[in-house]
Design a protein around this nucleic acid. Sequence first.
RNA 1: GGGCCGUUAGCUCAGCUGGUAGAGCAGCGGACUUUUAAUCCGUCGGUCCCAGGUUCGAGUCCUGGACGGCCCA
Length: 511
Amino acid sequence: MADEQTLIEERRRKLAALRERGEAFPNDFRRDALAGELQAAYGDRDAQALERSPVRVRVAGRILAKRVMGRVSFLQLQDMSGRIQVLVQRDALGDEAYQAFKKGWDVGDIVGVEGVLIRTRTGELTVRAERLRLLTKALRPLPEKWHGLQDQEQRYRMRYVDLIVNPEVRRAFLTRTRVIAHIRRFLDERGFVEVETPMMQPIPGGATARPFVTHHNALDMDLYLRIAPELYLKRLVVGGFEKVYEINRNFRNEGLSSRHNPEFTMLEFYWAYADYRDLMDLTEEMLRGLAQEVLGSTVVRYQGRGYELGRPFRRVRLLDAVLERNPGLGAGDLRDPARARRAAEAAGIAVEPGWGPGKIQLELFEKTVEETLLEPTFVTHFPTEVSPLARRCADDPFYTDRFELFVAGREIANGFSELNDYEDQAERFREQARARAAGDDEAMYYDADFIRALEYGMPPTAGEGIGIDRLVMFLTDSPSIRDVILFPHMRPEREAAGGGRRSAGGGDGAD
RNA sequence: GGGCCGUUAGCUCAGCUGGUAGAGCAGCGGACUUUUAAUCCGUCGGUCCCAGGUUCGAGUCCUGGACGGCCCA
């Protein structure tokens, strides 16, 4: 009587008894209180005070624990706000109702309770039930009460179970929601306008990445799931949306890892009459306020280490950061194509044919510097060669007015003064198109409509993208991006019939 | 794509050098009117991820595969 099918059969039997009494899936119970709010409002009221002025409540939620002690029982009830205990007494409900509860109700069932607040002998705030309703009978048993669900695969595949039994998971996702809400408020307060631009694009632009392809039947044309919204948001700046942002999904057809999911959430915002330095200031302010709001402190604990967001972030040029970590190199070694190639090869980098000194500087940076940048650091002056949408530095066109923000060794944000010189932009697109023709399938396409938009004139503008998932990982102390994406991508499960161990769908059609 | 690790009851986990597969929780039966990992007595429950192989004998050893985790590209 304890393999999965038997456990389910046992509950089906209980459900059948409910159906016979005509009360299997009622939808007329209305609650007027939430567990967490009751804890907050009455948590400090003592037993006598609760007795003197009784508080009647109707709560509903899932049974997480059931402790039967003869003619009295205790339930632990969980709703979206938290948990509260329920006291169930035979003498209050009558013998028939109490027996039905005792024999027919299980951990995992969803119930409604009407009663009064009391404090038990051991001091716990409790709803003493006067009426009990079983609202939804659960067929499947919940995981073990103490350890919860540990198996990573099952936690991701059956997130609904993970959320029921692992409170820290629920907390992380609520934090994610608060992060996004805070960012919206932050930008709204500063006059930014939120928009939505195409997810399906005829030309995938705005980043270097492999896209997903789909097909529009009526138009008989391929469309690409966007890898970035950038080129559309800049069209809007041309159109007069001088402060604009979008928080939404990007799709990149690349590998999965603890830092990559094929679909991920990005904030992009564009700010006319500002430059990349203004962006860095704004980013610091945003992240500082965010930590304060979400964590109550500007110190973030991540994977055992503390990070201080309260102080100004370090700012360092990419070349200087590379030279710091590679003491054998001099500035001149990384500007000349042949010398840069030799330097990279000496550092163990397999230099590909099309790479110029700018790409090599970036590779050296990623290989030798990136993961060492623990404290929040703005790395500035990315080479023009690897920044096809960024404005060149006024004093040195080899570099751009661009930065990336690194925290805990990971890229969190990428921003730059936008390239609004349509002639330069057209030339950069042609350069990308040449690289693509030469076999670089991550290189950008030439986007003629975007050039046309720029030719109408885009004001001097700064724009930035912030990876929301990685930011939330940092703020929730999550080691994997899958811990902050509700339903991360997984390989399909094997069919239950195929003999695989995991058979989440195994009960389907059993009746 | 490569390397390492994992997969045993619904869940969390033991299982030594190859010799009859275990515990706790959950379930079921019983006791119990203030417990909170309730307690106590009794009890059911296994395609040891899959397929081959070695062996008198495989959860355990070998080969291949599936899925997952970590690291690398």
